[in-house]
Amino acid sequence: MKSSFMLNMEISDTLKQTGTVLAFLAVIPPVYLVNSMRLGGDASFAHHAFYGSLFTVAFLMMTLATSMFRRERSDDAMQYLKTLPLSPARVAARKIIPRLFASWIVAVLFAIVFFRGLLLIHRSGSVLDAVFTVNVILLAPALLMAGGFLFDVSGRKSPVLALMLALPALFVFIAAGNGWFPLLRLFLGLWRWNMTPGLFHAAAILSVALGVVLPAMLPLLVLAPVYREWNRTPERVLTRKMIRRASIPSVALLALFVLYFL
């Protein structure tokens, strides 16, 4: 398979980055012990474990998303990579897929342990929970990785572009975190309808697809043509083109953000 060494290299880098960040989990028991024994805190170990893990998982995703080209930058090998006859899609796949899988696996484990599994500190399942799970666990990391990849490609110099590229994942995360009912009411006017459960579920999924998934993906999708020339375009020019192209979808997403959640 073409460039399998590159894929192996990316998998190895991903495992190292993931292992390093997950090592932070080891801090949770000592923090709990210090809190409960020394400081007299009454929060349970489950509480500590939940928030410690949540922070670690979020930090892991941010780390993975923003370190796509860490090796190239520390080795000063960006220019070399750009001269290799690899298609832009192949480079993106090699960089994003291992990190996305690592994010998904860690996020799914987190969800199993804290939402449905051992500690059972969250609500039980429903179709809206399923939509929540899919969006938060699968879609938000995918958007975060794609955004992080594009930001890394751009040279990581523009905070405006960073915000634009982080917005889609944030939007999905907050949309899910706020619950779907306000969105459903707003988007499809469901409060007027007397729906069967099946129709309600279908409408919920459709409204999430049209009201959340599609708008969230737009700022990233419009950057695909700009990315196609990533290896031939100076980073400064690339950043400028990305900001120009993603500005309208980002503003639209921001407007939806305000409309839905504020």
Partner: peptide, 29 residues
Amino acid sequence: RHLIGYLPDCTCIYRSLRVNQLERLHRES
């Protein structure tokens, strides 16, 4: 780029790799 060999004005190859690893990456690309 399949038919171009470019030696730029810097030694900008992967410093963290071994020679045989870089050779494999290059060849596979």
